[in-house]
């Protein structure tokens, strides 16, 4: 059974807005710092959140990033409305990307976003429907890490 949510916040992400991509991840990082979450968890979650945000900006029309903090875990979900992912196994392979040349020239679309998210998450879930959108769930466990002093 899930325990009580101690903090939650939502961030809106606009597709195509490369200028502001990463700002939700930045705000999220600052919130986690203020709360006093373990620095290693913040570092890993910031990477995952940035990648998720850039994916929405690159491939979707619109997305919502939600952070839910429980006593024992942090849950980050990113849900978008967009083209979705046809083959998730393929998309999870490092280096695989459907990004355009223009986007690659900007240093995005290296095919490292989803692998980076999985690598940094304690639990990573992804589901997608073509022409509808993608949902990501990133969980960070707080139990062992947050026992400090």
């Amino acid at each position: 059974m899930d325990s009580e949510v101690v903090f939650k916040q939502e961030f809106e992400i606009n597709g195509g807005d490369f200028v502001n991509a990463g700002e939700s991840a930045s705000k999220l990082k600052n919130i986690l710092k203020e709360i006093g979450i373990d620095t290693d968890i913040i570092r890993r979650l910031a990477i995952a959140a940035y990648e998720a945000e850039v994916n929405v900006v690159t491939y979707a029309r619109h997305g919502i990033m939600r952070i839910l903090i429980y006593p024992e875990k942090i849950l980050l979900t990113v849900e978008d409305e967009g083209q979705g992912i046809k083959d998730i196994d393929l998309a999870m392979q490092p280096g695989y990307s459907t990004a355009t040349d223009e986007i690659r020239e900007m240093g995005f679309g290296a095919g490292l976003g989803l692998p980076n998210m999985k690598k940094n998450a304690d639990i990573f879930n992804i589901s997608s429907t073509v022409d509808k959108g993608t949902k990501l769930e990133i969980t960070m466990n707080l139990n062992d890490k947050n026992v400090r002093d």
């Binding site: 490369f18 700002e23 940035y50 900007m106």
Partner: peptide
């Protein structure tokens, strides 16, 4: 060190 000059490098650098 990078050759990118677009605004998103700031988000990455700040993060």
């Amino acid at each position: 060190i990078t050759l990118q000059g677009h605004p998103n490098i700031v988000a990455v650098a700040v993060l």
